[in-house]
Design a binder for these strands. Structure first.
Length: 569
DNA sequence: AGGGAATGGGGCC
DNA sequence: TGGCCCCCCTTCCC
């Protein structure tokens, strides 16, 4: 069956970049092949050092503490092997647990979860609780989940991008609820971007709303011209997207945030007696439309509520996660307004009843091995839960009314914590009626024809199967932030400071990473250039091409039959 | 070009 | 509880 095309025509690929031109032409890499060589050279003798003879001849002295210049592994500091990149392939330290599944005894390269077609699924421990309650809810809610899985249509081809639009890494993305081509973005500096990716050049950045990390944004359900934001500066904002005029609805650091002052390195003045340990940061924004309240939580485990009509704080902060620990996310149930899902650094995701919201009164505590970056109800029926945890596992609970003691599935997936990356969050496809398709960026790289690339993965969470991994040779940075469009077949990715818009394209070629057999999707005919997008010749690039002049198409991508994004399951 | 900085989380005492 | 140290595939700027 021919690959489907729901997304019809593809506009030209357009790249927008801030004028801040920083020509990056330096890194033309003629020497793809040399990379290979220096790998082989590791048999270096010149590093062995005179230490050897010293120790043989002068036995008398105690074994000196001299630093051997012999190469050691940068991870375990032991000689005999070296971790790190060899060319575009990363070699793990064999002394450490697998970087992917965290189990000892093998490395990422040989990890069973990496080579498996079912991408690292741990079978669910079978449960056998069938209460009548469960039965009722199954009938009421479960029926909303389509039993028939539609063919997944994967946005696999970069359609346009804004490079250096933000000045710091992207931290959140949100599609406009009614205007199809509008994407808003937040960054680490607290700036809010509004981009019309239909008209690539129309974008605005508001820089005076927040002082640092904009963690979450949500459109106002009653007025989609305004957007709420929760920031690590400890405030919730309400911003008019047209004017950029912003209101602060909550401020947890009313005495100022010393960090901000220090960063802007102003103020030789009085030292405030605040320290990092008392700064309050806000995460996880969502709203309960029923009650008309906005919810956000902080890094001390507290939940705050703001009345959306009066814009005033309502009620007292409620401890919803371990005291002093960060709440990383909040999500209100799409159908049942009384249900709230939270997750945090205390290794739990918790389900709450909004009618009985007080410390310790959660309905369920979903236990994880590590910090939970995100927890979401499924987008349409809300009957499933998906979490992303720093133990490199996605967890799925198939029915919130069933036995929640353990997840229905654990899917091993590389989305490690890294201090300098926005935390990865697996996101549902809001259009998928079967509530199976999920998108999540991948941390570990793949040697992709000599370039280390970090794909964005599409996973069928009902099976744990990797449906597609999409990548682009021009995106060499990790893409931890991903969002699927509520109506269109569009994926938005935030990768470092750049934002990319992907659309489906059937005319894609099969491509194999250098080291193994997995199938990946990649653009065809693009230049393979390790570097950045170029736009020095203007913006109108041909479809399928990012560069213009100096486009050296090197080794063409492997030819094979088209792999439409049509995987049925 | 290579070193440093960026304010996150865990484990240990 | 708090301070200290470590850290595995970062990224970008100086």
């Amino acid at each position: 069956m021919a690959p489907q095309t729901r997304g019809m025509s593809f506009p030209k690929v357009l790249i927008e970049r801030d004028s801040n031109s920083e020509e990056s032409s330096s890194e033309e890499e003629e020497e793809d092949d040399d990379v290979q060589n220096d790998v082989a050279e590791e048999s270096d003798d010149e590093h062995v050092e005179e230490k050897d003879e010293a120790s043989t001849s002068t036995r008398i002295r105690r074994e000196p503490i001299t630093i051997s210049l012999k190469k050691v592994c940068k991870v375990c500091k032991k000689p005999g092997h070296e971790a790190g990149f060899r060319g575009a392939t990363y070699i793990d330290c064999p002394m450490k647990p697998c970087f992917l599944c965290k189990m000892p005894g093998h490395t990422t390269m040989t990890c069973p979860h990496r080579v498996a077609t079912e991408y690292g699924v741990a079978p669910a421990p079978h449960k056998s609780t069938h209460s009548s309650l469960e039965y009722v809810f199954e009938r009421q809610l479960r029926c909303r989940v389509s039993a028939i899985k539609p063919a997944f249509l994967i946005p696999n081809k970069v359609n346009c991008a804004v490079i250096r639009y933000h000045s710091r890494r992207i931290t959140c993305l949100e599609f406009h609820p009614t205007r199809n081509n509008i994407l808003i973005s937040g960054d680490k500096k607290g700036q809010l971007g509004v981009w019309d990716y239909g008209k690539v050049h129309e974008r605005t950045v508001y820089g005076n709303i927040h002082g640092c990390i904009l963690n979450n944004m949500k459109f106002n359900p009653t007025n989609d011209g305004t957007v709420y934001g929760a920031s690590s500066d400890g405030t919730i904002s309400s911003t008019d997207l047209e004017t950029g005029i912003s209101l602060s609805l909550l401020n947890l650091n009313p005495n100022g945030w010393q960090g901000l002052e220090r960063v802007s390195e102003s103020v030789g003045g009085a030292k405030v007696t605040m320290g990092p340990s008392s700064w309050r940061m806000l995460y996880g924004l969502d709203m309960n439309s029923d009650k008309g309240i906005l919810l956000a939580a902080d890094n001390f485990g507290l939940l705050y509520m703001v009345d959306m009509r009066s814009n005033n704080v309502t009620g007292k902060p409620i401890l919803i996660h371990k005291k002093g620990s960060k709440v990383t996310g909040l999500h209100c149930h799409p159908l049942q307004p009384e249900l709230l899902l939270s997750c945090g650094n205390d290794h739990f995701a918790r389900i709450w009843d909004m009618r009985r919201l007080e410390a310790g009164s959660s309905i369920y505590d979903l236990s994880h091995k590590r910090v939970v970056n995100s927890a979401y109800f499924s987008p349409q029926s809300g009957s499933k839960i998906l979490t992303t945890s720093q133990d490199n596992r996605l967890r799925v609970w198939d029915s919130i009314f069933g036995n929640l003691d353990s997840p229905s599935r654990e899917i091993v997936h590389s989305h490690d914590f890294n201090r300098h990356l926005t935390p990865f969050r697996a996101e549902w496809d809001p259009k998928d009626a079967s509530e199976c398709l999920v998108v999540v960026g991948r941390y570990i790289s793949e040697n992709y024809d000599g370039i280390a690339l970090h794909p964005v993965d599409f996973i069928d969470v009902s099976k744990g199967q990797l449906v597609a991994e999409v990548m682009d040779p021009n995106i060499t940075t990790i893409s931890p932030v991903n969002k699927l469009h509520p109506r269109d077949d569009v994926l938005a990715s935030g990768s470092s400071r750049s934002i990319f818009i992907w659309r489906p394209q059937e005319n894609f070629e099969l491509k194999r990473p250098r080291d193994e057999n997995r199938i990946v999707l990649c653009g065809k005919g693009e230049k393979q250039r390790k570097g950045k997008f170029e736009d020095d010749s203007g913006d109108d690039f041909d479809n399928g091409t990012y560069g213009s002049k100096s486009l050296k198409t090197k080794k063409p991508f492997l030819k094979s039959k088209a792999y439409g994004s049509k995987r049925k399951c």
